[in-house]
Design a protein around this nucleic acid. Sequence first.
DNA 1: GTCGCAATGTACCAACTGGTTCATTGCGTA
DNA 2: TACGCAATGAACCAGTTGGTACATTGCGAC
Lengths: 206, 206
Amino acid sequence: MVAQRDAERTRAELLDVATQVFAEDGFSGARVDVIAERTRTTKRMIYYYFASKEGLYLAVLERAYLGIRAAEQELHVGDLSPVDGVRRLAELTFDHHQAHPEFIRLVSIENIHGGRFIARLDSLREMGNPAASLLEDVLSRGRSEGTFRADVDAVDVHMVISAYCVFPVANQHTFGYLFDRDLRDPSRREHLRRTIGDLVVAWLTA
Amino acid sequence: MVAQRDAERTRAELLDVATQVFAEDGFSGARVDVIAERTRTTKRMIYYYFASKEGLYLAVLERAYLGIRAAEQELHVGDLSPVDGVRRLAELTFDHHQAHPEFIRLVSIENIHGGRFIARLDSLREMGNPAASLLEDVLSRGRSEGTFRADVDAVDVHMVISAYCVFPVANQHTFGYLFDRDLRDPSRREHLRRTIGDLVVAWLTA
DNA sequence: GTCGCAATGTACCAACTGGTTCATTGCGTA
DNA sequence: TACGCAATGAACCAGTTGGTACATTGCGAC
């Protein structure tokens, strides 16, 4: 018989389901009862482990960000030329966003709430941003080599890449409707992927 | 004495307030009572004119888009060279987004809801997209002139510009928190503005 | 002036929703 | 094997919220 009591599993299952539901319906739209229903446990457990709907949302948000950061730790572009390095960094960022739409949705939701929840997660700030650090490095190599322009910093470049990678996921529905173009269609992905590389490289080397 | 009965004014006031409240709190987060309170009229009028909370939201969304389209009609870049034309188009788009954050918020919200509401507003699709049409024109001039690359179309370029212009508004809070950089700070606006021009021109002429 | 109807105000409701109460159960341990 | 406590389940509650019933009022037409 499977263990009938497993605190870790219960907690994890709640987080998984809550991530899905919050990403789908937003904070206000999500219903505690719905989250509980989709679980093998009950609503009581949400309040037992997370104290409140807000506490659950905070836990979901934190875990989502920590997951992203962990993945970023795996990146490495030190052995590539600056030009190949930024292109690769941009493409990997693109892949990553494509693979985690629910994360992007959570971020959108958080911004609609004015970032009032994320502001309480000190853990995120402390751990820094691996992708941005890598970029910092590649960028300075390119600059001292003379191939990259010097009027933008790593955060500027990171913003351009983020903006491009977030958009096809975050705005897929309105854009798709207005321009009759499904930005998430697999057959279009390679073109989009190549484009962010072209874009950033052309810009930095101009 | 001011007119005590003015259907048009009542309707418009409801739409104005509702736009603000929906943009602030999302569809589920917005409260019908709150919208009514901030108006000189009552909740009853919302149901009188818009039938339901959803009806009101649809009206808000439609009006917001129509407003944007109307503004886009004013653009004209036909007398500029292709290079100057795209730069100007990008910069004007940037200005426009900066000036209408509440519109961007509504679009974000709509995407979180899977575009389920906008899909019912046929009026929007019918009117086309002035900015994209202009881009189409400038782009084809640049291509036949030989200055612009040919492996991207107008919608691709429009997406890049949109992504860049939307991001600083839509993600200001999470980005601002994580990178300790206020993307909406007026002192940074000019730099951001110039950058989208540089980016697109460098890319297209690469 | 008074009739007809659009427009409006008030009070109310039924359903929903986040959160709680309290009893119960399984698991490690002495 | 009995004890202590983490973990769990089910029923319940009080505040909130979208929506409505119904009475009333102002305005234009004649």
